[in-house]
């Protein structure tokens, strides 16, 4: 199912964390990459970290390719956009969309992507070739988020499954992210919170 996750690139101390992570979130308009960004954003804000998160609104949201640049740091961040070869992580809800942002990934950066193809164009490439292209990059995690989301209890938790798979590469302790999930879904009731926490942790378990 998933390529085995390697060692986490960051170490955490309980009190003050030193970190600086640049993430490109990608997918297809309507897939909901922004709720992933919202969880990480809450986690960063709760813990007094600096954050910048640029989003795509407007025309592309109608089934086009969409991305969000998410930057979290213990020190002030200038640019809202990540420079070329500046991303530590590409977190993608669609495998071809993960590849679109490769020029932005550091040599030793990670690709964490859903393996489920979203086919809404006539010339969508061969699925296996996409997977092979992703595998050319040493640091990758391919994951069938839909199968795991169903296992967690709802297809709608696919985003949280993917976020869970990326936990080792965010530069943030897992507890921060869990709190972010709780905050984001709090208004929807305890059941929804628990469902999403289950999805977040399903890759680990």
């Amino acid at each position: 199912m998933a390529s085995k996750a390697r060692k986490a690139p960051y170490k955490f101390s309980r009190k003050r964390i030193n970190m600086n992570t640049n993430i490109i979130l990608s997918g297809v308009g309507g897939q909901g990459i922004l709720s992933i960004a919202a969880v990480i954003g809450k986690a960063a804000l709760n813990n007094d970290l600096y954050i910048k998160q640029s989003e795509v609104h407007g025309m592309s949201q109608r089934g086009g390719d969409v991305q969000s640049n998410l930057r979290i740091s213990d020190s002030p961040i200038y640019s809202d956009l990540i420079p070329l070869k500046g991303a530590d992580l590409i977190l993608s809800l669609e495998p071809m969309e993960a590849l679109r942002y490769l020029p932005f990934l550091k040599e030793d950066g990670w690709i964490v992507t859903s393996s489920v193809n979203f086919v809404n164009i006539p010339d969508y490439p061969n699925a296996e070739e996409i997977i092979n292209e992703i595998k050319k990059h040493k640091n990758h995690v391919l994951i069938d988020v839909e199968a795991l989301a169903k296992q967690a209890g709802s297809l709608r938790t696919a985003n949280m499954v993917l976020l869970g798979a990326a936990l080792p590469y965010l530069g943030l302790p897992k507890e921060y992210i869990e709190q972010g999930v709780k905050d984001l879904f709090a208004s929807k009731g305890e059941d929804i919170v628990n469902l999403n926490l289950k999805a977040l942790n399903i890759v680990r378990s």
Partner: peptide, 19 residues
């Protein structure tokens, strides 16, 4: 600068479309 890096050829354009 890092302008020499390119998107893999396999990646196709995904323009927006009517729902």
């Amino acid at each position: 600068t890092e302008f020499n890096t390119t998107i893999p050829e396999i990646v196709k354009m995904r323009p927006p479309a009517l729902c």
